[in-house]
Design a protein around this nucleic acid. Sequence first.
DNA 1: GTCTATACCAAGATAGAC
DNA 2: GTCTATCTTGGTATAGAC
Lengths: 219, 219
Amino acid sequence: MAEAPAQDRGARSRDAILDSAGELMSRYGYAATSISMISAECGLPASSIYWHFGSKDGIYVAVLERARTALLTALPPAEVPGADVAERLDAFLAEVQRAFHRQPHGLKLLLGLGMVQQDASAAAVAEVHHYRDALVAWTRDALSAVFRLHDRPQVADELARFTLRMASGTVVARWFDPSAVMDTGALHVALLALAAHHDVLVHGTSGEGSRSRDVTDRE
Amino acid sequence: MAEAPAQDRGARSRDAILDSAGELMSRYGYAATSISMISAECGLPASSIYWHFGSKDGIYVAVLERARTALLTALPPAEVPGADVAERLDAFLAEVQRAFHRQPHGLKLLLGLGMVQQDASAAAVAEVHHYRDALVAWTRDALSAVFRLHDRPQVADELARFTLRMASGTVVARWFDPSAVMDTGALHVALLALAAHHDVLVHGTSGEGSRSRDVTDRE
DNA sequence: GTCTATACCAAGATAGAC
DNA sequence: GTCTATCTTGGTATAGAC
């Protein structure tokens, strides 16, 4: 077809705009990112940006949507391999850490833009919640598989909430100290203890302390 | 004296401006809060705001500074009462929760504005870090007292980091779901387990977690 | 210290040629 | 789909009377 290249160019421009916008918005936040900054970053004029997305809010929604699908396709398995709890928990935490490490803006976007909800459009608010809900669901399902919690949904919920708050807190810590990383070692210990506290069977390793099962303690 | 009332009026205006600015900035973020919004909220004209603070950045620094001193004077005791670890930990967590509950904007400010560091002035960045450092120090000292960690500073650091990330994560959770609160129960279990994991003596009490405390692992 | 009025500029957004 | 040029609004910030 003769029009394929044209469509291609448009699609690539669209991606370039989203790349620039995502980078800038995750860095400076939505309000502090201007169309001209995006234009300067990606090389296309402001009017092209408006042609693709219609409004600043439209860019915001598209950026979030792309970040969400990228994150979720990077987190395929809700079922976690491993014979016992400790092994599955390690696999889960490794997955979390890898996703965390490979999605530098995704989470900052969710956090930084989530704050702005109050003045954002309905579509933007919906997309933020969609993103958040997907993360919650994945975490709950994965932890449910790790600890075999199919009959204890409220426990799975608590563990997921705990894990996500830890992850959010780490994102926050990273903008004070960019070298901060997820402390999966501490999270491992904490999740085992929480599970044991709710009388979840954590067979195999000795009790919930499980010092034998160290992940990658950095020091 | 005849000038006292004038000084008073100025001081009260200054406070009113800071109240409005703090409220708006913790809600919408620094960039999305305009001088006219602050002016409308507190009733004083924009020029008065500039007379008091010189620039938008000046307001930002003053707001942060006031939030920091307010929070820190609300957290007086670095030493925590209690005969055993579980009791002191409960006292500590109660203190954290009370501070969390009574400082609705303080932490949101620190988080929301912390993100904006990249484009903020040097004074603003310094104030944000000052605030953050004060929080870290208080938490570390308090936990050090709870667990008697004077000779294990790196363990105190890890516990403090864990606690603060949990608190930050809860602040984030609150702007998705305003009814979210600090889960001090889970934090209690997790901190005890982390301390035990580092071979910190957590003698005998069964805390609130009945069965969470029976592992006095030896190395 | 507080007000009215205003300078100045960058923001978001659009028009219309190509 | 992309460009140049432009409109409008609202932003930060200041001048100067009171």
